[in-house]
Design a protein around this nucleic acid. Structure first.
Lengths: 199, 199
DNA sequence: CCTACCGATCGGTAGG
DNA sequence: CCTACCGATCGGTAGG
């Protein structure tokens, strides 16, 4: 007989992710959380030390997922359009595979204590830098239009991949790959129909 | 002597928008809010009836702004690319001019009571429908690529205009018009550099 | 992991 | 608009 159950601490984090994402961090009481796990409020503190510890761990976990997904791409030698496509896929996949913690990440990071707050802000800057680098590369190598504003372009890309946490539904007929390919096609090629002839 | 001060009720709503957007609805106490206005907690209830009333009013106000901005565009006869450009401008302008209530709108609508919650969900559907209609028009008239997926395209556009609440800073050197023009240029024309010749 | 409890704070009210 | 207060609930702890 093997022990197939997740460690209790992980169960607590899973429940917390779900409840925090549905109701928000402050609107979820420790008794709500305990009830979701079939225990009494005070019992939680045998496994964790504070409510904020849960938030910190959920947010850190999400950050780490984005990092792992994107930074292996950083050094790879491929055309910028292909790299953008792959980055968007990985980014959306992290969101799609972690809808709860991604939602907590985007909504509740403001409630972190200064130290953890600073870490998240730093993470955000790192991701920004990743996309700006990618776009700069694309402009320099001639893959992307030369007149792109790097900052605005990366905002546009980040909008597309981040906003997915609001509408994406796992288990539907659209996987992260499909979403990324469609978004990348539209972003790279544009929405406008090709003109048949020039006047 | 004219009375230049805003009515107290509006002041309360302004403060509430700011505090709710910074700290979140549940993390803002009525005493925080009262303190921000230089009064005692209980005194607020001379002007309002409940905390949720504030949230409802802030969210409704934001909804109304989006409605007013977009629905006058609905019937206008113009090419879809131009209409998309204008819609994005108006949408971003509402966000930019109402950063606080827009943030509350996007983050705190889940905490509304069922009735108000349903109203917001309905609003969301209406805005979705507006953009899908616009894109459908563009495909039908040949302005947009024929192979666009209407739903995905509208998600992409909505991502761009909505996500602005996270990064836009009013008073900077970038007005809503600038942002919208740049986003529309990129979305319509694509990021990829035009190929000089075909192989 | 439970029971029983702590001080603090919550949204809201009464009476002025 | 203030003072004083209400019951309810909060995060967390002690002792088992």
């Amino acid at each position: 007989m093997t022990d197939t159950a997740k460690p209790r601490r992980e169960q607590i984090l899973d429940s917390a992710s779900r409840l925090f994402s549905e109701r928000g961090y402050h609107a979820t009481s420790m008794r709500d959380l305990a009830g979701d796990l079939g225990m009494q409020g005070g019992s939680l503190y045998a496994h964790i030390s504070s409510k904020e510890e849960l938030l910190i761990e959920i947010v850190n976990q999400a950050s780490r997922q984005f990092d792992t997904a994107l930074f292996t791409l950083r050094g790879e030698a491929m055309p910028a359009d292909q790299k953008l496509r792959e980055a968007m896929y990985r980014h959306i996949r992290v969101v799609a595979d972690n809808m709860d913690s991604a939602t907590v990440f985007f909504h509740e990071w403001k409630h972190l204590s200064p130290e953890a707050y600073a870490r998240v802000t730093g993470w955000r800057d790192t991701i920004d830098a990743f996309y700006r680098e990618l776009i700069t590369q694309g402009v320099q190598e001639g893959t992307f239009r030369a007149d792109l504003d790097i900052k605005m372009t990366s905002y546009l890309v980040l909008s597309a991949v981040n906003w997915a946490y609001t509408w994406y539904r796992p288990g539907g007929n659209l996987g992260p790959r499909d979403v990324a390919e469609q978004f990348a096609d539209m972003l790279l090629g544009g929405l406008r129909a090709p003109t048949g002839e020039r006047p």
